[in-house]
Amino acid sequence: MPSYSTPLKLGPLLLKNRVIMASLTRDRNRIPGPLQVEYYTQRAGAGLILTEGTFIEELGCEWSNAPGIYTNEQVAGWKKIVDSVHARQGLIYIQLWHIGRVAHPLLQNGRPNVGPSALAAKGGKFSQIKGEPGYVVPEAIKDPTFYISLYKQAAERAKEAGFDGVELHSANGYLPHQFIDNTSNHRTDQWGGSVENRCRFPLGIIDELSRVYGNDRVGIKLSPSGGYNDIGMNDTDTIETYGYLIKELNARRLAYIQLARYWAFVDPAGRGKNVDIFQWRKLINSEHTAFFVNTDFDSEEGAKVLESGMADAIVFGRLYISNPDLAERLIKNRELNTYLNMQGLCGGGREGYTNYPTYEKQKLQQFLSNIEYL
């Protein structure tokens, strides 16, 4: 029975374990620097690192220091990270990100927000600006192929930086998800309406990424339950849409398909549905495409999912913030550090970012504290 320690073949790569580091927006630097090299290198014990969401073009974002890969300086910064992770026998994919209609309304350098349709997301706020203005009505994209080409260019830059592969962020209410969901996509052309038309945009991106990297080095993240960023279809449309999309992705023999579960924490308005992501397991052929699952898994549940064959690997987010050696802790069934420095979660320096201890250091600190107390 598979466990956390079982290697996993992922296209031409062999993951040393089945513990995947999730994409985590930490808001530290638009151009990755030495601090990011330290952060990712600390976590190179993961079977696979998925980078934080990385912009394919300059965008206004609530996280004003989220990184990009649209300049030569950014490519050079990421290359140092990739080289350092590889030196620790780690593997790393970059997650390509465009936020579409939920971009920051006042940080767009005079450009309009864009989306599949001129429909604003509801309920948003941007705490970095006084008065906390919400989402604005985007400009409907005239030619979606232009944005598909931006993703391709980003993949070419990622390859230059040495990444082992690329993941399309097609979840959480960002641009590809906005095309998929019929609540945000009201187009009447070939990019909207039917299931096939609404899925045309993410599938078009996947095809271009595959031309750059090869299909077996490309992954995708999906969140069928919706909820975040005012996204979410009814049950019937969700099952039909994602059934079609996952069949098409499986036919492309990608490296993996990652599905995120519903998380009420990011859905205060109750827009999403608690959809069972495991219903689509049977549509994914693990002989050529791995099935990753994400969101709110603890060590015990993740182990059971692997043992049952319900998924091929578990993607961990918050636990990888506070446990740089999470894979080793899970494999050796060691105590996990559950403390999160909330002030250092997004933005800042080393505090709450690279100063979390490994298991050995944590135990040493506890031992020294006990001696001092005595």
Rank of each mutant, 00 (worst) to 15 (best):
L15G: 00
L15F: 05
L15Q: 08
K16E: 09
K16N: 01
K16D: 05
K16V: 00
N17K: 06
N17D: 09
I20T: 02
I20W: 04
M21A: 14
M21T: 10
A22M: 05
A22Q: 01
S23Y: 05
S23E: 05
L24A: 07
L24C: 10
T25I: 09
T25M: 14
T25R: 10
R26S: 04
R26D: 07
R26Q: 12
D27Y: 12
D27F: 09
R28C: 09
N29C: 15
N29H: 14
N29S: 15
R30Y: 11
I31Y: 09
I31M: 07
I31D: 01
P32Q: 04
P32H: 08
P32D: 00
G33W: 14
G33V: 14
G33I: 10
G33R: 13
G33E: 15
P34F: 13
P34Q: 11
P34R: 13
P34W: 11
L35R: 05
V37R: 01
V37T: 12
V37N: 01
V37A: 08
V37W: 00
V37G: 01
E38I: 15
Y39C: 03
Y40R: 05
T41H: 01
T41C: 02
T41F: 03
Q42H: 10
Q42R: 08
Q42Y: 12
Q42E: 06
R43Y: 01
R43T: 03
R43G: 06
A44Y: 01
G45V: 11
G45Q: 09
G45N: 09
A46Y: 01
